[in-house]
């Protein structure tokens, strides 16, 4: 007699917990050829608001960690992800319809990207900050600081590598994140949230929402306690992106417009620096 599988319930990740949507709704996730994979939670506006509250709550602690510590935590994520390589390769394969080999390559690239970003944690301040030679007797220095709570629409196509590539730079710089996963390919994101939960990332630092963007994205765009909005996942919907950007203007969110990204190439500093504020401090020099 064949064993009956224990199927996995794909839930949201909010504030270190894995709730189903408070709305009780879910939606059907299919593989690349239309076969049923699982029901994913359909996050509501309320779920999105709860996620923002969790991200804000986590922000003071996470941003106050030493850069060294944040680097260690992100590196730990890479370690744990490496350990889940097989599971994620399978999920990516199903989600994206790629070959096994390509999918494994994508997971490997995601692990390598985390390692790359982990190393930036305690170096970026020296690259983008510094002292300013003002023409007066003051010691004047500029340091980068995290912007705050970031709403992210993860890329729709690249379910894991794309997700990691938009979340890691935000987190390693000390921001906290509410990410709306790829709508049609959300399952690797949920598993990635489980990886985060088992790798020293404090609850609330990364909150993962699955479901239609029509509910979550406007909530993130209009929420006054969200400081930045990454519209990468709205690439295929220019009108929607424009509306979200206009909404984000209400509290002057930093907005990243959707653009075609190549997740295989060196990402550069840009995905970290747009989520950094420069703080400049002046102090007199005297006896």
């Amino acid at each position: 007699m064949t064993r009956i599988d224990v199927r996995k319930t794909y839930k949201l990740a909010i504030g270190g917990a894995f709730p189903r949507s408070e709305s009780g709704r879910s939606y059907e996730v299919t593989d690349a050829s239309g076969g049923f994979l699982a029901n994913a939670a359909h996050a509501s506006r309320k779920d999105a608001r709860d996620a923002v509250v969790a991200a804000r709550k986590a922000f003071p602690g996470w941003s106050a960690r030493t850069a060294y510590n944040r680097g260690q935590v992100v590196y730990r994520v890479a370690e744990v992800l490496e350990g889940r390589r097989a599971q994620l390769a399978e999920e990516v394969q199903r989600a994206e319809g790629a070959t096994r080999r390509v999918s494994e390559g994508l997971v490997d690239a995601a692990v390598d990207r985390l390692v790359w970003y982990a190393g930036w944690a305690d170096k970026l301040a020296q690259v983008v900050g510094g002292t300013n030679p003002v023409a007066a007797p003051y010691f004047d220095f500029s340091v980068p600081e995290p912007t705050g709570v970031v709403g992210v629409l993860a890329p729709q196509e690249s379910s894991l590598l794309g997700l990691v590539s938009v979340v890691a730079p935000a987190v390693v710089t000390g921001n906290t994140v509410v990410v709306a996963a790829s709508v049609r390919r959300p399952l690797p994101a949920v598993t990635f949230a489980e990886v985060l939960a088992t790798s020293d990332v404090p609850g609330g630092v990364v909150n993962v929402l699955t479901g239609l963007l029509t509910d979550t994205a406007p909530t993130l765009a209009s929420h006054l306690d969200v400081n930045a909005l990454d519209l990468t996942g709205a690439l295929g919907d220019p009108d929607g992106a424009t509306a979200l950007e206009a909404d984000a203007a209400e509290n002057l969110k930093r907005v990243r417009r959707p653009a075609q990204d190549d997740w295989a190439t060196d990402p550069g500093l840009d995905r970290m620096t747009w989520l950094l504020e420069t703080k400049t401090v002046w102090h007199p020099i005297g006896t």
Binding site: P137, I285, T287
Partner: peptide, 12 residues
């Protein structure tokens, strides 16, 4: 030593 300090740059 309890008198308020003087900031050199500000005083100058």
């Amino acid at each position: 030593h309890g008198l308020p300090g003087v900031d050199q740059v500000g005083a100058e």
